[in-house]
Computed example of a mutant assay.
Amino acid sequence: MILITHDDLDGAGCAVLATAAYDKILVYICNYAAVNDTVLDVLSGPDEILITDISVSPEIAEKIDRRGSVKLFDHHKTAAWLNRYPWAKVDSSCCGTMHLFNYLSQSHRRLKKYQDFTAVVNDYDLWLHKDPRSRQLNRLHYILGPHRFIKRFSADGRVRFRPEEKLLLDLEEEKIREYRAMLAGYEGVDRYGNKYLFVFAERYASELGKFLLEKHPDYGYVMIINARQYPTKVSLRSRGDVDVAAIAREYGGGGHKAAAGFVVKEPGYRALVQGWARDTKS
């Protein structure tokens, strides 16, 4: 079995379940820039393939359709067109980890003990934030990196943090506080009349989005621009009343109603930033 999955917490959650379900599995973790090439590289082999929390281009989808022995589970609205294929399921009602859990637990009873883990990942990825453990789980994923995280939770799916993990989480909380205290925010109004804030930051996009939305309740959403990454990554966060996935789609990205993103290259990046930078500092 081969798993190709996204490089965020939800993608790692899918890898945790697949690793726990299959004795032999090869896991590829990738972003949208690499997913098509990654899928293309493995299509010529004989293995069954799972693709989770990420989608492919129409050209690759046609190759998959001719090949067979592939299952794709995603939940991003921008990938809904893949539902035309019998091997794909794209449903935004829950995260990729939840979709994979519902699929694998039918034939792998040992995955039942990962039900709570799956629910915590779903809480974070859909930006529900009803379970305080979900933010901590995402932080731990960031601290450990995807491969250590997958190894740790595939062996023990209980979302109970060990003493050393709690220490790491506490230290990370201090770093986040120090980091966000150094940032300057800028305000503006988009073409739809929504007030927004944007900051330049290369780390902690979701943490910053949540903090800024709580601090500034009058703003509909937040843009976090990673100007040190190329292509430049732009993350969008809202409370859900502004559909940031729709904004991201205008720039070739996607996501959820409350959490989305896109990437831009020169000269588009400078044009966007110059337009934002003319707004007023908050």
Rank of each mutant, 00 (worst) to 15 (best):
R180M: 13
V120L: 03
G255W: 01
L169I: 07
G193R: 15
K130I: 01
S105G: 03
V120E: 03
D125T: 00
L208Q: 12
F149E: 02
G240Y: 01
F153Y: 15
G268L: 14
L17I: 03
K215C: 10
G268H: 12
V199G: 09
A18K: 01
L183H: 11
H99T: 06
L126F: 05
A184Q: 10
A184M: 14
E173K: 10
R203T: 09
L82S: 11
Y219Q: 10
Q106A: 13
S107P: 01
E214C: 10
R160Q: 14
G254Y: 11
T19R: 13
I60N: 06
A259L: 09
A88H: 11
H256K: 07
A277R: 15
R109E: 15
G220S: 13
V70A: 13
S93M: 02
I25G: 12
D279G: 15
L50G: 03
G209E: 03
L236P: 06
H6Y: 05
I143F: 07
R249H: 06
S69Q: 09
S154T: 07
A61C: 05
A18G: 03
G96A: 06
H75Y: 09
A248C: 12
A248R: 01
P46C: 11
A33C: 09
S44Q: 13
R160C: 05
T38C: 13
R239D: 07
R203A: 09
E48L: 01
A18S: 08
G157D: 03
D243G: 10
I150P: 02
L128W: 11
D125S: 02
K257M: 04
L272I: 12
H99V: 00
F149D: 04
S238N: 09
L137P: 01
S105A: 11
S57C: 04
Y85I: 08
I4F: 07
L43Y: 07
I150N: 01
N138C: 12
K89N: 04
L272C: 04
E48V: 02
A34M: 14
Y269I: 12
R148F: 05
Y103W: 14
E173Q: 14
G255A: 03
R66Q: 11
G255V: 03
I25S: 14
G252A: 14
